[in-house]
Amino acid sequence: MIGYIESVINGILMGSIYGLTAVGLTLIFGVMKVVNFAHGSILMVGMFAAYWFITLTGFNPYLALVVVVPLLYFFGYYMQKIIIKPIFEAEKHVREPITVIIVTTGIWYVLDNLALLVFGAEFRVAQTSVTGKMVEVAEMYFPLAKMIGAGITLLLGIYLYWFLKHSRMGKAVRATSLDREAATLMGIKQSRIYNIVFGMGCACCGVAACVLVPFYYVYPTVGVPFDIKAFVIVVLGGLGSVPGAILGGIIIGIIETVGAQFMAATWTEMLIYAFFLVVLFVKPSGLFGLRQDY
C-alpha cells in the first residue's frame, strides 16, 4: 500500500514538472495560435545556461533563475521579432499560420545541432546542494529537488494566472488572444504583444530548465522527450490554458508512475497516448480549453 502512495506522490511531483515544461508552450499557443516545435530546444538552451551558471559559480542552483529566466525571455523576444514575425506578417490572413510550425521546426534543428557542435555529445550532470537529497516520510522517499520544482511550478502558475487576469499587460495579451483585429483596433500593438508572449513562453522554459538541472542530465537533444510530452499535456489541459497545462502534467505524471506499477513501462507510454486520444474525442477542448480553439 505504502508503495502505491509513494508512486502517486512521485507521479504528482514529476507531473507538475512536466506541467511546468508545458506552460510556455500553452502560453504561446493561446495567444499566437502557433504550436512552437522549438519548445524542447529552448528548454535545452535554458538547461545549458543553468548548468553553466551553477557549475561555474557554484551558487545555489535556484539562483540560476535570476540569470536564466531573463536570458531566455530576451532570447524568445528577439527570436519572435527577427525570425517569426516576418513570416507571421506574410500569413496574417490565415487563422493558424502553419508555416510557422515549419519555421519553429527549423529553429529546433538549428539549436539542437548547434548545441552538439558547441558542447559536444557529452552528458553533463550539475552537482548542486540539492542533488540526490531525499526527504523521508514514513519510509517513503521523495527527491527534494522535485519537491522544490513542484513548489516553483505552483508559484509560477499563480503568478501567470494573476498576470493574465489582473495586470494591464495581461489584459492586452488576453484581448489579442481572443480577437486579433479587435485588439488592434483598441490600440494594442499586436506584434509587440507577440514578442512579449513569445519571450514569456521561453522564460517559462527557463524556469523549467532551472528546476530540472539539479536532478536531470543536460545534453543537446535533452528537449526531445519533453517535447512530445508537452504536446500531449497542453491538449489535455486545453491549448492556451495555464492551469490546464499544470493539471494535465500532473495527470500524465500519475498515469506514468501508477500505471508502471501494473504493467511494463513501455505500455504506460501507450496508455498516455490512448488516454490523450480519448480525451480529444470526448472533449476536444481539453480540461480548461476555450471552445473556439478546436
Binding site: G3, S7, G11, M14, G253, T257, A264, E269
Partner: peptide, 20 residues
Amino acid sequence: DEPYPSTASDLTPVVLKLKR
C-alpha cells in the same frame, strides 16, 4: 522483467517497481 522506453523522460516509476 521490465523493458522501458529509452527516450523516457523519467524513470522513477521503473525504479519504484524494481525496489518493490
